[in-house]
């Protein structure tokens, strides 16, 4: 209206964090994206509601505060034991009418079913990092070939050793990956039985262990204690970090997809 009076007209969009069941309380005490953050509200459609806030579409999205705000809103719902289907960061729709009519209405059944599947479940994510000195010493003690190569490299001038350096690093990288796979499997053996569903990322040398679990509300404490016990057992050589309760970032797509195609394996325990 008085946009002509402004040097740059502010264009507003509707940022969508996720979808929740209709009974959910307005999450107006949590700060979402934007600087300053706009109030977080609900857009309702029959059985479900979208969690949204107003966003200036002229501003680049993706500052650290935006990423943290996105997660903060979704995780606060998860912490309150509200089932929530997270959208991928950066989902902006024209206005609240479009959210209700074009986003929620056409997929109402799928969203409602997936939310029902999520009742009483939240994601917990466990990440592991090797204590580098310790694990490298272990590798040298166990792998004679690597120890030998290290000796060779040490005896060569730096320039001449480049190829061997790369080879040495590659062998270590492969060994770390193999250890990550084995430790991921051990972690899943212990923690997956406590969860409704488990997911893990493929181990790499840089990220040897990343696993997420959908944990029933009444097992949150027990799950944490089991993870603490593992951390104590492994503490000398690996540091475990546990995040949660979180929105089910690692499970949302599968949950909705499984409801879409009937033949999806949807193997729920």
């Amino acid at each position: 209206m008085n946009a002509t009076a402004l040097p740059e007209p502010v264009t507003l969009g509707c940022y969508v964090y996720g979808v929740v069941p209709i009974g959910t309380r307005e999450p107006n005490d949590v700060e979402g994206i934007g600087d300053p953050p706009a109030p977080v509200t609900l857009v309702r459609h029959r059985e479900i509601a979208a969690v949204v806030s107003e966003v200036d579409t002229g501003r680049p999205l993706g500052a650290p505060g935006d990423l943290l705000g996105h997660a903060r809103v979704l995780d606060s719902l998860a912490a309150a034991n509200v089932p929530v289907l997270p959208f991928r960061f950066g989902a902006v729709v024209r206005d609240v009418e479009a959210v209700a009519d074009d986003l929620l209405a056409p997929q109402e059944r799928q969203f409602a079913d997936a939310l029902e599947d999520l009742t009483d479940l939240a994601q917990f994510t466990v990440r592991g990092t090797y204590r580098e000195d310790r694990v490298l010493r272990d590798i040298l003690a166990e792998r004679a070939d690597i120890a030998r190569l290290r000796e060779q490299v040490a005896g060569l001038p730096e320039d001449a050793a480049r190829y061997q350096q790369i080879q040495l690093g590659e062998l270590i990288s492969q060994e770390l990956t193999a250890r990550g796979q084995a430790d991921t499997a051990r972690l899943l053996d212990v923690l997956a039985p406590l969860a409704a569903r488990a997911f893990h990322a493929d181990a790499t040398a840089d990220q040897p262990l990343y696993a997420s679990f959908l944990v029933p509300h009444d097992r949150w404490k027990g799950f944490e204690h089991a993870t603490e016990d593992l951390a104590a057992d492994w503490g000398a050589w690996m540091e475990l970090r546990m995040l949660g309760p979180l929105a089910p970032y690692d499970f949302a797509s599968q949950l909705v997809d499984a409801d879409v195609d009937a033949e999806g394996d949807g193997s729920w325990d």
Binding site: G18, P86, F87, R88, F89, A91, D250, A252, S253
Partner: peptide, 9 residues
Amino acid sequence: LILDKGLVI
């Protein structure tokens, strides 16, 4: 945790 994850609009 969040990048590249979640439902796509």
